[in-house]
Design a protein around this nucleic acid. Structure first.
Length: 918
RNA sequence: GGGCGGUUAGCUCAGUGGUAGAGCACCGGCUUUACACGCCGGCUGUCACAGGUUCGAAUCCUGUACCGCCCACCA
């Protein structure tokens, strides 16, 4: 899509505009708005699918500010996007905001000092206090959502400013928010399709892909919501083993169990030991009673019981941990639930049949002292009672053990029976593994994490959350004549009602007045897990629900970039949804970025207080400098936060400015590239183009940068010095013409190779002498350099549109263009040798001058060079350039015997101030 | 307990069968008509350890140690 019809490597002197003193300052403010105005990053949806490169951008969570880790990983994606765009792809690069979910809710609560109380009516005149009150103000759900929308809108503006300053080449017309009507529509529609769509299971029965079930669920007692397996994390917590005696019913004897949660004794439903454990084999199916409450329980056998742990016999409660759930299910045990959703022990009628106590009155008396206490307080209390009662053997032994937490929660998870919606996953593990193998992972070993996670799934995905700010389930339930909710026959919303909220909308066939009435209906009160929406980012952004043409062009997508910590959540759930909804793999590539570590090798995070404000970094080092640091982090590799690297990047950007100013500063005359050194440099540049392109194609942007940078510094320090004198005319117009043509060509290629990394400085320099944006200029190819050397079969470059590049602009031209210049050695290999030889001589002479501590203004009278035959020929080709660059009056070349080591020897220096001969 | 990465110069990291590298830092020199935000040069290594394969190993294999991460049914 190059806008110009002329060569990208030639110079139009009339177009050239060089600044007096080029500088980095202000480039972000200058170019970011211009890119937006001119739409250089707009997705062109008229292009065929084969030309499209679509990116499933991670929507950052809108719950505060972006941090340096975001800058790091989003830069990586931008590098790929810019490369693909320059290669001629129509890049589909959207930006999303994840403003749907708990983090946003929590931020809104703290920011405004409010709490959501769904029972309150909407107050249209509510205004939050300017500073949050100490006591949170209760507001209605609509008021709360208004505040969520208000705060996220402000945050998103700030995010967009940062991304634009960083130079992300996002098409800002493709912005989406996970709480938007459009995302809600996709989310609800996809959910309903799963509910209606059958799935054949291994044993032949057919079930729906999303279903609801009343079952033990992981539960956070502070947020008062169900959470999913993927949102769990372990934390090392202090605890204690309590050894407790359970007496045999109707006879002598007792067993001792060990537990860290004695407060769950009232919820005990069995004891369990390993079937092979000889200590307990005689006790299987025998009755015991719980201490204090005297509930009848039996000893059961199950292979999960570990004879090595504790006393080898465990108490099963409903529910202490996920193993309890397994035992409860597989041994068909009763439910004796005591934990309430708020994390306190609830009231129990001990004379009801469920508890099966030998002494209901005594049990009731003991239990009353626990009702309303949290787990921790109840534990203290029950230990006192057990001690008095004599059931506690010895004293509790303190330990540290891992406890499951909701990753955003503050108290250990409980397992509470509740009705939740699930998406099926466990039955299709092998299909999900197969999907993972269709994706090309960068780096490849990240696929293992995905497979480990899928293989370790122990339940379907719970997607319902008992929260407020999220996508509601588009579902109602009928109420029967007694007012009981009939969960078995949910009323699904019609597609044309979406997006909707069942707490305000009325199902077809009902009247609003029937809400909550016997014989009427009631809306599902829950919202979806934030991942239930995020897992549909491809569907949301590609127009699955409302733009089939766009969807066909962009889905499946080419790239999912993301960090490795959310493989088990975002990546996994996206694959799952795409598989269940579309029967497709959502992307061809997954590029997994690492973390930013602080110098102590810990992940940088807010809680550790070591987060640096990204905007300040961009201001201090320049966006190009920060991008340089980010680009040095290879895919999947954690990278140390290193301002030193940003400074290096900044210096590189400054060098680009100055070298460009030099290359373009005296760029006439232009002539055919005939000088051996020039041809050698161009040849070497061809190799760089090949290498950088191959690296980028393999998603190894870091290597592409490193090779380009390394070439560029040598180009500046060696090549520019070698041709400096000649380009100013020391060897005549043709020598200058060759140097200038090579300089402008090399500059053009190098700028384009740098453009993905340093978008601001390369665009700035490009604007001095080229038309259009460098970011839609063609990525350099070897053939355009071949044609400059007059060596390609056809003198055309392979640009995106196949435009013709004129091989050698002839501006100079008096007679034979090669007159007065040494003849080039011709082939590519020889060209390379010339360049290497010249830089070897540069190095040797510089070293000797440095050791002799002679300033550069002092001329070297003579350098004696002893070489083999081949090198002596090379010497004659570069003699003049070397004399000029090194300030050497003469080289004396002698040919040594075969096998004799090469020698380069500075023979002497002229006086610093030459004596004027009379 | 299982798995995945890593261990190379003081620091940050490249290098995946053929003479150990870059940048930063450090030391010395240099105002050189692009750049002192610059240039030229110098110093710096049991390539974690132990075996093995090989003519040859930082690189391949086996094991060990340490660091990080992921997972696990943690009574």
């Amino acid at each position: 899509m190059p806008s110009s019809s002329r060569s990208l490597t030639s110079l139009d002197p009339g177009r050239l505009r060089l600044p007096e003193k080029p500088a980095l300052e202000g480039l972000e403010a200058r170019w970011a708005p211009l890119w937006e105005e001119t739409g250089v990053y707009r997705f062109d949806r008229t292009r065929p699918r084969s030309d499209v490169y679509s990116i499933d951008t991670p929507p950052p969570t809108v719950s505060g500010s972006l941090h340096v880790g975001h800058v790091f990983s989003f830069t990586h994606t931008d590098l790929i996007a810019r490369f693909q765009r320059m290669r001629g792809k129509a890049v589909f690069y959207p930006m999303g905001w994840d403003d749907n979910g708990l983090p946003t809710e929590r931020r809104v609560q703290n920011y405004y000092g409010v709490r959501c109380d769904p029972s309150l009516p909407y107050d249209p005149s509510f205004v939050p206090p300017s500073t949050p009150a100490k006591q949170p103000i209760s507001v209605s759900r609509p008021n709360f959502i208004e505040l969520c929308n208000r705060l996220t809108a402000e945050d998103e503006k700030a995010f967009e400013r940062l991304w634009k300053t960083l130079g992300l080449s996002v098409d800002w017309a493709l912005t989406y928010a996970t709480i938007s009507k459009r995302a809600q529509h996709v989310s609800q529609l996809a959910f309903l399709k799963l509910v209606k769509k059958p799935l054949a299971r291994p044993f032949g029965n057919v079930v729906s892909r999303a279903y609801q079930l009343e079952a033990p669920t992981l539960w956070d007692v502070d947020f008062k919501t169900a959470v999913a397996q993927a949102e769990l994390e372990d934390r090392e917590m202090p605890g204690a083993y309590h050894r407790i005696r359970f007496s045999r019913v109707g006879g002598e004897g007792a067993v001792e169990i060990e537990t860290t949660r004695p407060e769950l004794i009232p919820a005990c439903v069995a004891l369990v030991a390993h079937p092979d454990d000889v200590r307990y084999q005689g006790l299987f199916d025998k009755y015991f009673e719980t201490p204090l409450f005297r509930t009848l329980i039996r000893v059961r056998s199950h292979p999960l019981a570990d004879p090595e742990k504790g006393s080898g016999i465990a108490m099963v409660c409903t529910f202490g941990d996920t193993t309890d759930v397994t035992w409860w299910r597989e041994l068909t045990l009763p439910v004796r639930a005591i934990m309430q959703p708020n994390g306190t022990l609830g009231p129990i009628a001990w004379d009801s049949g469920v508890w099966d106590s030998l002494d209901p009155t005594g049990a009731q008396r003991h239990y009353e002292t626990l009702v309303g206490l949290s787990a921790v307080k109840a534990r203290t209390r029950i230990v006192e009672m057990l001690r008095e009662n004599g059931a506690l053997i010895g004293e509790p032994r303190p330990i540290t053990h891992p406890v499951k937490f909701f990753e955003k929660g503050d108290r250990p998870l409980e397992i509470i029976t509740s009705r939740q919606w699930f998406i099926r996953a466990v039955d299709i593990k092998h299909e999900l593994i197969a999907r993972g193998r269709e994706i090309e992972w960068h780096p490849p070993f990240m696929r293992t994490r995905y497979e480990d996670w899928v293989n370790g799934l122990n339940g379907d995905w719970c997607i319902s959350r008992q929260r407020f700010f999220g996508v509601p389930f588009p579902v109602w339930y009928p109420l029967d004549e007694t007012g009981r909710t009939v969960y078995e026959t949910p009323i699904l919303a019609e597609d044309d009602q979406l997006p909707m909220d069942p707490s305000t909308e009325v199902p077809k066939g009902y009247r609003a007045g029937q809400r909550g009435q016997p014989g009427g209906f009631i809306g599902d009160p829950d919202v979806m897990d934030t991942w239930a929406t995020s897992s549909l980012t491809p569907q949301i952004v590609c127009g699955w629900a409302d733009d089939p043409d766009l969807f066909a062009k962009t889905f499946p997508m080419q790239l999912r970039p993301q960090a490795h910590d959310i493989i088990r959540t975002w990546l996994f759930t996206t694959v799952l949804r795409s598989h269940l909804e579309e029967d497709k793999t959502p992307w061809a590539h997954a590029a997994i970025s690492g973390w930013v570590l602080d110098p102590d090798r810990k992940k940088m995070s807010k809680s550790k207080g070591n987060v640096v404000t990204p905007l300040a970094l961009l201001e201090e080092h320049g966006s190009d400098g920060v991008r340089y640091w980010a680009a040095s982090g290879r895919p999947g590799t954690d990278t140390t936060f290193d301002p030193g690297q940003m400074k290096v990047g900044r210096r590189l950007a400054i060098k680009v400015l100055n070298a460009s100013k030099f290359a373009l500063g005296a760029a006439s005359p232009q002539g055919p590239i005939v000088a051996p050194v020039d041809r050698a440099m161009i040849r070497s540049l061809s190799h760089l183009v090949e290498e950088a392109t191959a690296a980028f194609e393999a998603y190894d942007y870091a290597r592409a940068l490193q090779r380009t940078e390394s070439f560029f510094w040598k180009f500046c320090d060696d090549y520019l010095e070698l041709v400096k004198g000649r380009r100013y005319g020391e060897q005549g117009a043709d020598g200058a013409g060759s140097a200038n043509a090579a300089l402008t060509a090399a500059l053009s290629v190098l700028l384009r190779l740098f453009a993905p990394f340093l978008p601001f400085v390369t665009e700035e320099v490009w604007s001095w002498w080229q038309n259009g944006s460098i970011h839609v200029a063609a990525w350099p190819v070897v053939s355009e350099l071949d044609s400059l050397l007059g060596e390609s079969g056809d003198a055309t470059s392979t640009t995106g549109t196949g435009e013709v590049t004129i091989a050698a602009p002839s501006i100079s031209g008096t007679g034979d263009p090669r007159a007065g210049l040494p003849a080039s050695a011709g082939t590519g290999e020889s060209d390379q040798a010339i360049y290497e030889w010249a830089t070897d001589v540069l190095f040797e002479v510089r070293k000797q001058r440095s050791e002799a501590k002679q300033p550069l203004k002092v001329f070297i009278t003579k350098v004696i060079v002893k070489v083999d035959t081949e090198k002596s020929e090379l010497m004659s080709l570069v003699d003049a350039d070397l004399r000029s660059a090194l300030r050497v009056r003469a080289f004396e070349t002698t040919v040594g015997a075969p096998g004799e080591p090469r020698e380069i020897l500075v023979a002497g220096y002229e006086p610093a101030v030459p004596v004027v001969q009379s």
